[in-house]
Amino acid sequence: MYHIKTIEGQYQAQGLKFAIVASRFNDFIVDRLIGGAVDYIGRNGGSKDDLTLVKVPGAYEMPLVARKLAASGKYDGVICLGAVIRGATPHFDYVCAECAKGVAQASLETNVPIGFGLLTTDTLEQAIERAGSKAGNKGVEAASATLEMVRVLEQI
């Protein structure tokens, strides 16, 4: 067996500041994602006083705000939450791809972990399932990934 140093993130949010960027589009779904993320941070020692919620029109606008928040030096991590539900036109594909690309680029440019909690579903039912029913809450998963990455980067 090899004995090597292993770096892993701890799920302890105490003392960390997070910004949540949330889309107003499909807000009845996104509000559930926000609730999941806020609850997760709180259950892991974080304080609501250390959370800032920024609402943006839609998923396309998320990367710019996420980058600005990450570059501000005020936050240890940023959590992006939104929901895009496929329609009859290719608009869905462009919005989802540009949002994903922009969020990844913002994280790489700023060296700040940015969690990607954008639901991209074919139906409203699928979105509801991923916002707190059968398939869990993807807001929780985005918050968890962001917290873990903050703690991993602290050790590198």
Rank of each mutant, 00 (worst) to 15 (best):
residue 5 K to C: 00
residue 5 K to D: 15
residue 5 K to T: 08
residue 7 I to Y: 11
residue 8 E to I: 14
residue 10 Q to P: 00
residue 14 Q to S: 15
residue 14 Q to N: 10
residue 15 G to F: 12
residue 16 L to Y: 14
residue 17 K to H: 12
residue 18 F to P: 01
residue 20 I to C: 05
residue 24 R to C: 01
residue 26 N to V: 13
residue 26 N to D: 12
residue 27 D to R: 12
residue 27 D to G: 09
residue 27 D to C: 00
residue 29 I to F: 12
residue 29 I to V: 14
residue 29 I to K: 09
residue 29 I to G: 09
residue 29 I to Q: 06
residue 30 V to S: 03
residue 30 V to N: 02
residue 31 D to C: 05
residue 32 R to D: 00
residue 34 I to T: 04
residue 35 G to E: 07
residue 35 G to R: 11
residue 36 G to H: 03
residue 36 G to F: 01
residue 37 A to V: 05
residue 37 A to N: 09
residue 38 V to H: 04
residue 39 D to L: 11
residue 40 Y to T: 09
residue 41 I to V: 13
residue 41 I to E: 10
residue 41 I to T: 08
residue 42 G to V: 04
residue 42 G to I: 05
residue 42 G to M: 01
residue 43 R to D: 05
residue 47 S to N: 08
residue 51 L to W: 05
residue 51 L to Q: 04
residue 51 L to C: 04
residue 52 T to R: 07
residue 53 L to I: 15
residue 57 P to E: 13
residue 57 P to G: 13
residue 57 P to R: 14
residue 58 G to D: 05
residue 59 A to E: 10
residue 59 A to L: 12
residue 60 Y to P: 00
residue 60 Y to E: 07
residue 62 M to W: 09
residue 62 M to H: 13
residue 62 M to K: 11
residue 63 P to N: 14
residue 63 P to T: 14
residue 63 P to L: 13
residue 66 A to P: 00
residue 67 R to Q: 15
residue 68 K to S: 12
residue 68 K to F: 09
residue 70 A to D: 00
residue 71 A to F: 05
residue 73 G to V: 03
residue 74 K to W: 02
residue 74 K to M: 10
residue 74 K to Q: 15
residue 75 Y to G: 03
residue 75 Y to F: 15
